[in-house]
Design a protein around this nucleic acid. Structure first.
Length: 302
DNA sequence: GGGCGTCAAGCGTAT
DNA sequence: ATACGCTTGACGCCC
């Protein structure tokens, strides 16, 4: 079991997700910004290793505008050795990596231009992980898309796009995740059945939108969708920030909620991404809990 | 050198 | 029909 956090580290000086305005795009700016993002990624990876954090989500902004039509330089070639070095840090430490394209990436949209842009963006994510020379256990996680008033047709559109249009390099990394409003786990499992795509279980989203299934049963079903080459299943974890509107991620790890989740989750091995606002601080907190709480110590064998 | 309107992209929901 | 939230920040124009 590995513990991770997404995209931003608040303890290091640098930022690995800096960007700039499309209106001021230039190749020079791209190289400068992406170069500094990659440098920062290396610093964050080193920080993670020295703090025992072996799971990390890389920001989609690392190469700004990578899949945008404005991009006319060969960023892959330019940053090849830098990315290879970053990948070497990951591999030599046994770290796990994920990425999460944002809400604009919708494979089942009825609008063709949305679908083709989304595919291009997924290709960028796959290219980046390939340039880091990471194996198929480094995943790109995506929500299943919109409902458009007819969920069955919408889900079938996802299946068709997956089967007919996604290149192999994307398929080997893509996983789908239940979201908080549109598609709960059950729909993701339906899509998985038809495509073989692994399902990433999001515990917080599940609490907000589900069919009332019990946790161990759902973990068993989602985990069964992961093949050996996919690595151990990934799970997203968060909890409700008290006093904020439902769906707001916690500011910091809720110790008791986290312990409850781990205890309820049985004896499966999986990697946990903490979607909590204080980032690496909560990851460190979670590690301390797992290492020192006698009730959880059997879960913490690695 | 600080203030603040705005940022590539899409959904569903509330109003 | 339009604004808002989504991880919220931070870019960069304006004074």
């Amino acid at each position: 079991m590995k513990i991770g956090y997404p995209c931003i580290n608040t303890s290091v000086e640098c930022r690995g997700n800096r960007t700039f305005r499309l209106a001021t795009y230039s190749e020079e700016k791209l190289i400068k910004t992406a170069g500094s993002n990659i440098d920062c990624l290396k610093s964050i990876l080193s920080y993670n290793i020295s703090h025992g954090i072996l799971f990390f989500r890389i920001s989609s902004d690392i190469i700004p505008f990578a899949s945008h039509p404005v991009m006319d330089s060969d960023w892959q070639d330019y940053f090849r050795s830098d990315l290879e070095e970053a990948g070497e840090i990951v591999k030599s430490s046994g770290m796990r990596i994920s990425m999460h394209p944002d809400q604009f990436i919708v494979l089942n949209s009825p609008r063709e231009e949305v679908v083709s842009r989304s595919i291009a963006e997924l290709e960028y994510h796959a290219d980046l992980l390939n340039l880091m020379c990471l194996d198929a256990s480094a995943k790109v996680q995506l929500h299943a898309g919109g409902r458009y008033g007819d969920p069955e047709s919408a889900k079938n559109r996802f299946v068709s796009v997956y089967r007919e249009r996604l290149p192999e390099k994307v398929k080997k990394r893509l996983v789908i995740e239940n979201d908080d409003r549109i598609y709960p786990v059950k729909d993701c499992l339906d899509i998985s059945e038809k495509t073989g795509i692994p399902v990433l279980f999001d515990y917080f989203h599940h609490g907000l939108r589900s069919h009332g299934e019990d946790l161990p049963g759902l973990l068993e079903k989602t985990f069964a969708t992961w093949r050996r080459s996919d690595g151990v299943p990934m799970v997203d974890y968060s909890s409700q920030e008290p006093g904020s509107r439902p769906g707001t991620h916690a500011r910091t790890l809720d110790r008791q909620n986290f312990i409850d989740f781990i205890q309820k989750s049985g004896n499966y091995d999986f990697d946990i991404m903490l979607e909590i606002k204080d980032k690496e601080k909560s990851a460190e907190k979670a590690l301390r809990i797992l290492e020192h709480d006698p009730r959880l110590v059997t879960r913490w064998t690695s």
